[in-house]
Design a protein around this nucleic acid. Structure first.
Lengths: 200, 200
DNA sequence: GTACGGCGGGACGCAACCGTAACGTCGTCG
DNA sequence: CGACGACGTTACGGTTGCGTCCCGCCGTAC
């Protein structure tokens, strides 16, 4: 029976170590040191650095993201931006996420795991955000949810994770306006003809 | 007199090694091996892994980005998206850029160098793209160039470097429409009052 | 009370790198 | 021709990490 507190300590140490040195430099010994644990305890649970990191990260990332329905597209977008901004400003997340994304560019197994998770979020987000807007009549049917997700998440991710610029309330407000306008425009320009019932 | 061909071989090897294993795992010995060069030749040029990478990367990134003036905001945006899409799909760039960005999150010196370069591009882009649109009357005066840059670059970066989804001509067209709309909206919602001469 | 199993600690042999130093080679300049 | 300097090679001692093994400790279940 593996002791839970030990497992928890290891998970915690992995996340911090990941943030501190990145996946490439992460060593089992450093994790053990930080967790105050013997290497044995780690190898008893996972057989690989890769396996260990993937299991731990997916377990963390698997937590459901809240996706409230505010009743308007603008409201949904704004709340989503706020959630994302908060998440991306957490110390651990802001270091681990870009690191794993970079690592995914060269490790197929990490890429698969990461992008599966991301696809999950995106799909959920696309259907709930764009889908509900379509139902409300705020966006035309046939709007592409994927493109919509890019428009919503891209700018804020760029600012927070790439440019590392400041984000305040006013910025989020303006961005929400811009995003909603962008959604309308991308929907309008997507000349995907609606399915006409009975047509050949 | 250090031999140029050797220096060039080392530069090349560093870029490839950076793409293959990332900054964290990059070793001088591996660079020397790949370049077909002795370690001595490397230490004769740089004293550090950090110094070496920074010098090489900034030299590569320092190449001027073409920023044509098409006469319309829509045209400028579209051509910019095409340039960015091409750049981000290059094998080396698509692996090195995210890697260094992730590394920047924990190495102040890399962060400083990278963000200085990025600020340079952004400033140039903001003044030329947004600035010219303002001069033409396509955007209201007082439009924030920084927010504009986020709106323009963010979505495409997200799709190419994060979600790793496909990008074709149609996508770029829709995205250009969305971005232009977003720029208008963010400009309109930015209630930065124009400076009234003579006001208190 | 005894057997069991997870635990930390420590040591193992092996491999990769670090940064430096001492060679001998080769092209170039004078 | 001779000196010089950049080069590749090899070796150095030292560090770090790997994955495995054994030890003695300790709580729990029987």
């Amino acid at each position: 029976m593996l002791r839970r507190e030990i497992t928890a300590a290891i998970r915690d140490a992995v996340m911090h170590e990941l943030a501190a040195v990145g996946y490439g430099r992460l060593s089992i010994e450093a994790v053990a040191r930080r967790a105050g644990v013997g290497k044995t305890a780690i190898y008893r649970r996972w057989s690989n650095k890769l396996e260990m990191v993937l299991e731990i990260v997916t377990k963390v990332a698997g937590r459901k993201m809240p996706m409230p329905d505010t009743g308007t597209l603008r409201g949904d977008v704004e709340i989503l931006l706020r959630i994302l901004a908060t998440a991306l400003q957490h110390r651990l997340a802001s270091q681990i996420i870009p690191d794993l994304l970079a690592e995914a560019a060269r490790n197929p197994q990490i890429a698969e795991t990461l992008h599966a998770t991301l696809r999950g979020y995106s799909a959920e987000l696309g259907t709930s955000l764009v889908g509900r807007a379509v139902e409300r009549g705020e966006l035309p049917p046939g709007t592409d949810p994927d493109t919509g997700v890019d428009v919503v998440l891209g700018p804020l991710y760029w600012r927070l994770a790439v440019a590392r610029g400041p984000v305040d309330d006013a910025y989020l407000e303006h961005m929400a306006d811009a995003v909603v306008a962008g959604l309308h425009a991308s929907a309008a320009s997507a000349v995907v003809p609606a399915v006409v019932p009975g047509a050949a």
